[in-house]
């Protein structure tokens, strides 16, 4: 059965949380990971929508370190007060 945007967003959120401190994930990593996890129950558009939902809600943020990544909001070492 096709997954909802909310279900995909939740699975993505968990992937990002599990990878925190180990590996920074890009949108493409999340999309590939979700397609591997749910197979035919998802497509690229639903992954796009799920990322949009995570970022618009503030649960995740875009970061830039040479390329763009999606991470949990945090205060980084480089940021001045």
């Amino acid at each position: 059965m096709a997954k909802t945007v909310e279900e995909v967003a939740e699975a993505m959120y968990n992937m990002i949380k599990d990878a925190t401190g180990l590996k920074k994930l890009k949108a493409t990593d999340l999309t590939k990971g979700i397609i591997e996890m749910f197979g035919d129950e998802v497509d690229k558009q639903i992954c796009k929508d799920a990322i949009k939902q995570l970022v618009n809600s503030g649960r995740c943020v875009y970061t830039y370190f040479g390329g763009s990544f999606i991470e949990l909001p945090h205060k980084e070492g480089a940021a001045n007060d």
Binding site: V55, N56, V61, Y62, T63, S68, H74, A79
Partner: peptide
């Protein structure tokens, strides 16, 4: 350079 700097919902347009 870099890091989490931007406006809500956008991943581009601001260079920290």
């Amino acid at each position: 350079h870099g890091g989490i700097v931007g406006v809500m919902g956008y991943g581009g347009g601001v260079i920290g």
